[in-house]
Design a protein around this nucleic acid. Structure first.
Lengths: 185, 185
DNA sequence: CTAGTATCTTGTCAATGCCTAGATTGCGCT
DNA sequence: AGCGCAATCTAGGCATTGACAAGATACTAG
């Protein structure tokens, strides 16, 4: 939109990134082809490589952006249930980012941008659960497993038959409420 | 081992499947190449296709086998925590199967063998949580999210820094114990 | 306006998935 | 025992892809 035909394309980096998000959201990261993205952006087949290096570089950029978006989405809430709901909402609103962020085999884990973005969300989550329970690490893993598992199963359509039309975020809230009763049995 | 040089290879199907599990466990499903598997088995590049049709067919076979193994691993326990621990143990012992089983975009979801195997584990899990809590579906999703999230984060090395050498299964058990305290806050 | 840099294009190569046709092996049937 | 048939595997080919190298074009600092 900023420059439909600016030669040098105006903002190829953004265009490729956006196209990549579309593809990943629709068909998963495995279906992503640099040449296809180049075609969508109307540039030559090797143009994307200049911005991202290679496939892993592109996915790393997606993951880093994802961590930044997740930090913003989580905010500074103290309530664990709210945090979980926001985590799930993030996964729904940015499915492509979410599907890539936690898959080291797809990423350049030594990338400085990725590491910085990851550190920020990590800090944020750790701080949020720090004062819950005896063992902060346990609490952290419990809350994260819960939210991450729900989000993962949701995006991979493994909960489709169980939601029965209810809003996922609300189901997750109810489910976090139900948890103590289950565990207490 | 059954037939090292049996022409027609003896059991190519099993050999390819096993090689595929190695590759997936080491580098993920994305790194899987039919031609590479053929080389490992010492057969021509197109031989695997005869047994699995194509890449998706091979992954579908892996997923179906995974569901069968999971059914066996879960057993008939009534205790939700035990069930969760077994789910996590299964993920650790069969990481390649686990990484493929819940990814519809990699599979032929209309494959009859896969559907049957899936149905069996589904029934088993549903039965196990049926009598816990008001809403069985909620309880099902809660327990599954917890175990699946933990297993997923574990296999993707996202918990490496938090386990501090402890056995994952034991951490999960403690974590399930911690849950009510977290939720109750 | 010029030099230098970022951006993009073109061409190439090896590897892969998938398809087709053909060869080899093993098995059932008479 | 031998014939035919089906399963299994081989060989070759094609389109697509990721990665690399060399060169062209547009922007920008001085």
């Amino acid at each position: 939109m900023t420059a439909e035909r600016a030669y040098h394309h105006g903002d190829l980096r953004r265009a490729v990134l956006t196209a990549a998000l579309d593809v990943i959201a629709a068909e998963g990261p495995a279906a992503l082809s640099l040449r296809d993205l180049a075609r969508r952006a109307g540039v030559s087949h090797a143009a994307p490589a200049h911005h991202f290096g290679d496939r892993a570089g592109l996915l790393t950029a997606v993951a880093a952006e994802g961590h930044a978006l997740l930090s913003d989405a989580l905010g500074e809430s103290e309530d664990l249930r709210d945090l979980g709901v926001r985590y799930v909402r993030f996964a729904r609103e940015h499915p492509a980012h979410f599907q890539v962020m936690f898959r080291p085999e797809l990423l350049r884990m030594d990338d400085s941008g990725l590491l910085a973005a990851r550190e920020r969300t990590g800090d944020l989550l750790r701080r949020a659960v720090a004062d819950h329970g005896d063992d902060p690490a346990l609490g952290f893993m419990a809350a994260w497993s819960m939210a991450h598992g729900f989000a993962t199963l949701l995006l991979s359509h493994n909960l489709d038959g169980l939601l029965e039309g209810r809003e996922p975020e609300e189901v997750f809230r109810a489910l976090a409420q139900e948890m103590p009763r289950l565990a207490g049995d």
